[in-house]
Amino acid sequence: MAARGDRVRVTGPDRRSRPVPRRRDLHAQTALGDLYLRSLLRAQLRLAAVVVGVLMLTVGALPVLFVVLPGLVDRTLLGVPVPWVVIGVVTYPWLVVLGWWFVRRAERNESRFAELVEELEA
């Protein structure tokens, strides 16, 4: 990395050369490396699918809920009609909870993967 104040003439990543293989990448060409990656990829994809699935079953199911139970529109919660409370208020903290849970699990998957790699290399 250049010292502060040095002029570095870079306008973005170098697009003309292929990514330089890192040590990590070399291992990936072996059967074992391939296995590591597949397991991490599968774990992360499964986690993402769970979170997006929960999102669709909760927030994504709201339109159907209001069509199936049209009476909800006339109900109120603390004086405010249910649609405003559920769609306009409750949804937002729920999205943060889902996101927070995902970040924790994704980082745990990665640490587990890192431990596995180091164990096998030791």
């Binding site: 292929r18 990514p19 293989p21 890192r22 040590r23 990590r24 990448d25 990936a28 060409q29 490396g33 391939d34 990656l37 991490l40 990829l41 992360q44 990665e110 640490s111 993967f113 890192a114 790699v117 180091e118």
Partner: peptide, 22 residues
């Protein structure tokens, strides 16, 4: 041809690469 290598890079935590750097 480089698909596999590129996907490894997308999904590998950077911490691993730093620790392993020579």
């Amino acid at each position: 041809a480089h698909t596999q290598r590129f996907l490894v890079r997308l999904h590998t935590p950077e911490a691993l690469e730093l620790e392993r750097a020579p």
